[in-house]
């Protein structure tokens, strides 16, 4: 680092929220691996991190919601804690030089809301099915995802169990453009009540046989939402 400005110590450590995109190759990195890598990115950026005071000091790092492998995102959030008064734009600049393409920091601010207030996430899922399958699939998909109950087998901490996910999907929209089908939906999020795009795809697989092992598809998290439907910040 070239600039060696000593930022003044803060009277209390400050929580700072980072917004970032996790796209491309980074979609294949698990939540746990991302956490580990994040610590190193923060160190490379030489941020004035505050360390926990225990026997094994470590920086504070909390993610809003884990992102499943194979899903991209343009709206990830993580909180860190700093001990010096470094401005947010400086933090953002430093993170930019310390990270690579698929991980792009887009905002940095002092948060006012808690992650627990997040109740939903908006996703878009694009399936490349080809003209022949697309029409039948999109109709069947809409029918399936608007029916009730929608029962899938979901892996939880206490093993696999059957869950009705019909109440966890809202604002569903399915578009078809040439051979591509796009599913846009808000899925519920939050402790014990999280629906992932893969869960949704499981329901569709059971009903339509698609997507199968040959299908190219992508999932993107677009927004994290509050209870009132506004974007969480």
């Amino acid at each position: 680092m070239t600039d060696k400005i000593e930022y003044p110590m803060l009277p209390e450590p400050r929580t700072v929220r980072l917004r970032f995109k996790k796209t491309g190759a980074l979609q294949y990195i698990s939540h746990l691996d991302l956490q580990r890598s994040f610590i190193r990115i923060l160190a490379r950026a030489e941020l004035p991190l505050w360390f926990t005071q225990g026997f094994n000091p470590h920086p504070k790092l909390v993610f809003a919601l884990p992102l499943a492998i194979g899903t991209e995102s343009v709206c990830e959030l993580a909180d860190i804690r700093i001990e010096r008064d470094m401005p947010c734009d400086e933090i953002l600049k430093r993170l930019g030089t310390a990270s690579s393409g698929g991980l792009e920091f887009t905002d940095c601010y002092v948060p006012s809301a808690k992650f627990a207030e997040i109740t939903g996430t908006e996703y878009t899922i694009t399936l490349e099915l080809g003209e022949d399958d697309a029409k039948a699939f999109s109709e069947k998909a809409f029918e399936t995802l608007t029916s009730s109950p929608i029962v899938i087998r979901k892996r939880t901490k206490s093993g696999e169990k059957e869950v009705d996910i019909s109440g966890m999907i809202s604002r569903l929209r399915i578009d078809r453009k040439r051979g591509n089908v796009t599913i846009n939906a808000v899925l519920s999020a939050g402790e014990g009540n999280t629906l992932n795009p893969e869960n949704l795809l499981d329901a569709l697989r059971a009903a339509t046989g698609l997507p199968d092992a040959e299908t190219e598809y992508s999932c993107m998290r677009l927004k994290m939402l509050c209870k009132d439907g506004a974007e969480f910040r």
Binding site: A25, Q27, Y28, R44, G101
Partner: peptide, 11 residues
């Protein structure tokens, strides 16, 4: 899949 995805910092 992270074994094959590339995209690492520093490549």
């Amino acid at each position: 899949p992270g074994r094959y995805a590339g995209g690492e910092f520093g490549q």
